[in-house]
Design a protein around this nucleic acid. Structure first.
Length: 134
DNA sequence: GCCAACGTTGGC
DNA sequence: GCCAACGTTGGC
């Protein structure tokens, strides 16, 4: 079992959209490292959804239901997409500002590699964040 | 709106 | 292969 964080701009695609549609094709990733992470995802891997932009933070948990396949939105190049479904929305969004203050999370790649959109996460970090979100 | 970080492009 | 220029992301 692996754990991941997917970042999205809520104006483009939000947690609300994910819940409303019940499922999402996670496409449009155009960065090699992020794409390689998508390709490592296995069915049932757990995901945290992060909203960037205004009041950035983690808003809920999701999971992988379909492993990577060619990104249908890619006109050229070697890109991948996965399918995910929402699991549970956090009671209260866990803001970036709060995440930064938690010692145990200081080294997670979400906080260090600000421009990467698909991050892997340790099970410890995942479980801590879930606990804080509920 | 600004700017740091950093990926990409293209000239050499 | 190096590096300057440029574009994009995303926090503030």
């Amino acid at each position: 079992m692996n754990y991941w964080i997917l970042k999205t701009e809520p104006q483009t695609f939000s947690w609300q959209d994910l819940e409303k549609e019940g499922k999402a094709i996670w496409d449009g990733v155009r960065n090699y490292e992020a794409r390689n992470n998508l390709r490592k995802m296995k069915t049932d891997d757990l995901i945290l959804i992060y909203h960037s932009g205004k009041n950035p933070g983690i808003i809920g948990a999701a999971k992988v239901i379909k492993e990577h396949y060619p990104d249908p939105t890619a006109k050229e190049g070697d890109w991948s997409a996965v399918d995910i479904i929402p699991v549970r929305k956090f009671k209260k969004m866990l803001l970036l500002q709060q995440l930064k203050q938690i010692k145990e999370l200081a080294s997670i790649s979400l906080l260090k590699r600000t421009r990467l959109s698909v991050h892997s996460l340790s099970s410890d970090a995942y479980n801590l964040i879930i606990k804080l979100g509920n």
